[in-house]
Amino acid sequence: MAEVAEKAVKAEMSEQPAVAWRVRGVRRRSTRTWRLRTSAAITLAVVVAVLLVPPLVQLDEQAVDLASKLQPPSLAHPFGTDDVGRDLLLRCVYGLRVSLLVGVVAAVVATVIGTAVGAAAAAAGGRVDRFVMRLVDLFSSVPHLLLGIFIVAMFRPGVWPVVVSVALTHWLSTARIVRAEVLSLRSRPYVDAAISGGASRWRVTVRHLLPGVLPQAGLAAVLMVPHAIWHESALSFLGLGLPTHQASLGTLVQSARGSLLAGDWWPTLFPGLFIIVPTLAIAGLAGAWRERLNPRRRSELML
């Protein structure tokens, strides 16, 4: 009896002291949130600048001021001026606006086309699937910058031909991702259960398969925005995108080539940074999104 009571007391005591909890993995989490926050802040700043600056500062893109051409960065012109005396900071913001517009619209259009084609191919299966995917392979076998140039060349220079060109050359990878994802979802027992419950082909696709691939397609869309920005810059750099007087990051870099050789670095550096920094920020956001999709992280509780 006494022995039992003593054991009980001991067990009580082992429970009594305030439990000292050991925390794990704090550091990794904080670097991750730090990265996410920086990316989000930069992206937000870019979007705000692009939306607010043009209405606030009416810029005549054609105006030149040869008296103040090629001034290095100063308080009045933080990014300096270009070879006809225009403020580079303002032109960069205007350029970013065009690039971002092209990037976002093209990425959305490409994702919609890609998702529709990929999902339709996978849901139909059989011969339709094979035919569509060979078509996708055919398109992919042409270097897509070349294809883009071909499309742009059919129109007059301007923003929309560039959007069309970028969108029409970028849906292929999304179509592949979506198709593969739908095919893997289609063999899940829950699709079997839905069919057994009387669901039509359409209902299975729309209610069970498409929602399952949307996060993946969304991630592909976000990752495509920087890609589309680079594509627009490349086209403009080659002189096929926007007309030269209209600021875009590509045209800015292109027109600064001459001054770079003369040792004036700022007209090249700042537009370049305007391409790279938002790209990294958006990629950082996409990375955080991908981590959310990762099933290992999603199930925080493994029971």
Partner: peptide, 30 residues
């Protein structure tokens, strides 16, 4: 629909986006 089927792995047999009540109601809606 004359058949009711139950599979081995409940995790794979349930659409992860549906709540349990939506899951149970799915055949009626279909």
């Amino acid at each position: 629909t004359a058949f009711g089927v139950v599979f081995q792995q409940p995790r794979l047999s349930a659409d992860p986006r549906l709540t349990l009540s939506a899951l149970i109601a799915e055949p009626l809606r279909a």
